[in-house]
Computed example of a mutant assay.
Amino acid sequence: MTDSTTGEAERRWDTDAAALEYRGAFTNGLDVQFGVRHDDNSRFRSKTIWNAGLSWRVEGTPWRLHASAGTGLSNPQYYQIIGGFGSTGNPDLKPEESRSVDLGVEYTLPDGRGTLDLTWFRERLEDEIEWFAAEEGNPNYRNQIGTSRREGVEVAYRHDITDSLTVGAAYTYLDATDPDGSVEVRRPRHELAMNAALQTFGGRGWLAADLRHVRDLTDSVGGATTNLPNFTTVNLAASYDLTDSARLTGRITNLFDKDYSEVWGYAAPGRAAWVGVETRW
């Protein structure tokens, strides 16, 4: 794999990677997975990362236990190294390195048509890359010193109410902090998602809606951390099979034209609609 770019000066680096993965499913309800990957990069230090997971459906009960763990690597982006758009790059940046773990339990509802899942997760990030205001000519990107911490819980629900109606919901609580203990920006503490899908016209069409609510989202403004307004958005989508090979589709995003922002100074798109036809042959 080769990455290259042209701009102020041509830059290029190569990555040779090798990966191995194992998956197994056993008659006692246990499923396991393990993977390992080694990256040999011409610019950054070579690194080996891994991931592992298991799922165990307890026989004769409605319970399933699941867990996973692993490490990760993210190389700096070109704009962070060479700069641009009013920012000065930093050629001395190091890749971000992470390690994570999660534990969870899933419960199958008595009617067998839905599940309820609770998961705890934790992640540790080293050398996180951040932008900061600097004097002209000095780098605007740097690796944070120390460990960034993210930890939280997620509750997910899915239920086939009828053969044609499915509903779902998920709530995530996230506690994310920088190495100095301050709240990490652009990561909401509370996020709720709800969705529903309905088959219509004898299975020839479907309608879908989803709702997203975000609370306690922060961003940096002039070197200080500021709370952004809470917001809720709703999206709709639909399709109808005109023939066996043609499908009419449509979707509306931000249905109620909500004014909101997830990054300070950048407004999110307002209401938008699309209509189209898909063909298959």
Rank of each mutant, 00 (worst) to 15 (best):
Gly86Lys: 02
Gly89Ser: 13
Asp92Leu: 11
Leu93Ile: 10
Glu97Thr: 13
Arg99Leu: 01
Val101Asp: 00
Asp102Tyr: 02
Asp102Met: 09
Val105His: 04
Glu106Val: 09
Thr108Ala: 14
Leu109Pro: 09
Pro110Glu: 05
Asp111Leu: 09
Arg113Val: 03
Gly114Cys: 08
Thr115Gly: 06
Asp117Asn: 12
Leu118Thr: 04
Leu118Ala: 15
Phe121Lys: 10
Phe121Ser: 06
Glu123Gly: 05
Glu123Asp: 10
Glu123Trp: 00
Arg124Leu: 09
Arg124Tyr: 01
Leu125Val: 13
Leu125Met: 11
Leu125Arg: 11
Glu130Thr: 13
Trp131Glu: 14
Phe132Arg: 12
Ala133Ser: 13
Gly137His: 05
Asn138Asp: 07
Asn138Lys: 13
Asn138Ile: 00
Asn138Tyr: 08
Pro139Glu: 13
Asn140Arg: 06
Asn143Asp: 08
Gln144Ile: 05
Gln144Thr: 14
Gln144Ser: 11
Thr147His: 02
Arg149Ala: 13
Glu151Phe: 00
Glu151Ser: 14
Gly152Ala: 11
Val153His: 07
Glu154Val: 11
Tyr157Ala: 15
Arg158Ser: 15
His159Pro: 02
His159Ser: 07
Asp160Ser: 13
Ile161Trp: 02
Asp163Cys: 05
Asp163Arg: 14
Ser164Cys: 01
Ser164Ala: 15
Leu165Lys: 00
Val167Arg: 00
Gly168Phe: 06
Ala169Ile: 07
Ala170Val: 01
Thr172Ala: 15
Tyr173Gly: 08
Leu174Trp: 04
Asp175Arg: 10
Asp178Leu: 15
Pro179Ala: 11
Pro179Cys: 08
Val183Gly: 03
Val183Phe: 05
Val185Ala: 15
Arg187Tyr: 03
Pro188Met: 09
Arg189Leu: 00
His190Lys: 04
His190Tyr: 12
Ala193Glu: 08
Ala193Lys: 14
Ala193Leu: 11
Met194Asp: 00
Asn195Leu: 01
Gln199Val: 01
